[in-house]
């Protein structure tokens, strides 16, 4: 490929990347990968990368070795793979550190009304003493986790969500066990809204929360699937 063809190709790749960054952000899909606070920054980056593409075809500077090929990798992956959030498979690998994303301090939940608490707020309450909340009404949304490694009885499954602080590289899971007679009817990654009552088991000496569900309703995956503390 001649130098001019390489420059034109590079311009196309840069402009495609700029297009992907702006399109994903405009469509709300960037929220599947990064914290929303960075979205404005991504728009700015897309504009600059587009300008890079515009000036690079007429530049006479030598192209850094392999730069276009390396740049094609994220572009091709972004085009080839439909946008998707982290799901249950990633959570299973971090079961040993589930809820570790909750800080040592106790930030206040948004409200004292437990019906409005999300899984992160329930995890916050669990780090101190969940026992006083036994009998409280709980309504949580999340994706289903069905996995033998959880060691759950047949009438229980886990509902979980990821908490994002920066990007998917630091996403940590929060989850709660759900008691529901027909627990196996839901496949992993199915999003559900669970309504029920909080129970606290302490058979091992450690209080373990469990929502005894009165209803489990399948829902669409939310536009912003990660919880942002």
């Amino acid at each position: 490929m001649g130098i001019m063809s390489r420059r034109i190709f590079l311009s196309v790749v840069l402009c495609t990347l700029a297009g992907i960054l702006s399109y994903r952000t405009a469509m709300g899909q960037m929220a599947l990968y990064i914290h929303p606070r960075y979205e404005l920054l991504v728009y700015g980056c897309a504009l600059v990368v587009f300008l890079f593409g515009a000036v690079s075809w007429s530049s006479n500077a030598p192209l850094p070795r392999l730069s276009t090929i390396f740049l094609c990798i994220p572009v091709c992956i972004a085009v080839a793979f439909a946008p998707k959030p982290l799901g249950s498979a990633a959570l299973v690998s971090q079961l040993g550190s589930l809820n570790a994303v909750v800080p040592a301090t106790q930030p206040q939940a948004r409200t004292t009304d437990t019906q409005q608490w999300n899984l992160y707020e329930w995890a916050l309450a669990s780090t101190v003493d969940i026992t006083p909340y036994a009998g409280s009404t709980a309504v949580v949304e999340g994706f289903v986790v069905q996995n033998d490694e959880l060691g759950l009885p047949d009438d229980q499954f886990m509902v979980a969500r990821y908490v994002l602080k920066c990007c998917t590289a630091d996403a940590g899971g929060v989850g709660m066990r759900i008691a529901w007679g027909n627990a196996r009817q839901f496949r992993s990654d199915q999003w559900v809204r669970v309504s029920g009552t909080l129970a606290v088991e302490s058979s091992t000496g450690v209080p373990r929360p469990l929502i005894v569900a009165s209803s489990v309703v399948p829902i669409e995956q939310p536009g912003r699937p990660y919880l942002i503390p």
Binding site: Y33, Y38, A78, L86
Partner: peptide
């Protein structure tokens, strides 16, 4: 998802 998360960020 993790690769694109790191790259986009």
């Amino acid at each position: 998802v993790i690769f694109l998360g790191i790259f986009y960020e």
